[in-house]
């Protein structure tokens, strides 16, 4: 079902429909993540992908326009590139471990230690939170800084200067 949604997004030309479909896609992805036991990630994906991203995309469409131009040439070259990449990746998957096996490499490294010691060491039963904030605190600090930087970048790009605002005081509209 996600695959169908993705292909439709590729084919559709009305950007409004594309945005609505990408929201649907996020919800489907969140459902899949719950099935895969990643409840924290699913909660984030539902809130971020389906909520905030949609508002932002719709805001952009409101500021620009919502119809895509007809492409001048057929997209054979990108299609070929995509096929080649897909073929290489399919070849690559043959070397990967099978789905759901408890003895694959990824489960042998640090994860068992987190699961066994995490609660005793941090007093937090949700291991995802414990790893996020404590064991990998540096990662999270850097990541918060990335968000901070992105926020500053957007402020620089989109904020009107003061003189600009006094020029056109009437065109500020209510949010929509």
């Amino acid at each position: 079902m996600m695959a169908i949604t993705a292909v439709t997004i590729a084919r559709l030309r009305n950007l409004f429909a594309v945005v609505v479909l990408s929201t649907l896609y996020s919800f489907l992805m969140a459902t899949v993540l719950v099935v895969l036991d990643a409840v924290d990630v699913a909660l984030t994906e539902a809130a971020v992908g389906a909520g905030i991203s949609t508002v932002l995309l719709l805001g952009t469409l409101y500021l620009t326009r919502s119809e895509e131009a007809v492409p001048v040439h057929r997209a054979w070259l990108p299609f070929g590139v995509a096929l080649v990449v897909g073929g290489l990746l399919a070849f690559g998957t043959l070397g990967l471990p099978e789905f759901g096996r408890p003895d694959s490499d990824i489960h042998q490294h640090v994860a068992p230690r987190y699961l066994e010691q995490g609660k005793a060491e941090t007093g937090v039963p949700n291991i995802v939170t414990a790893v996020l904030a404590s064991y990998r605190g540096f990662d999270t600090l850097g990541e918060t800084t990335v968000i901070f930087t992105a926020g500053v970048g957007i402020i620089l790009l989109l904020r009107r200067s003061r003189s600009d605002e006094s020029d056109r005081p009437t065109d500020r509209r209510d949010g929509s």
């Binding site: 990630v41 971020v48 932002l56 990824i106 987190y114 995802v128 996020l132 992105a150 970048g153």
Partner: peptide, 25 residues
């Protein structure tokens, strides 16, 4: 299930939306 990929992807999603917003700007 293994918690480590969950942590990595959790941060990836939020960074993803920040970069999406920057791109849209």
């Amino acid at each position: 299930s293994n918690p480590l990929p969950h942590v990595l992807i959790l941060t990836a999603i939020v960074v993803g939306v920040a970069t999406l917003a920057l791109g849209l700007a």
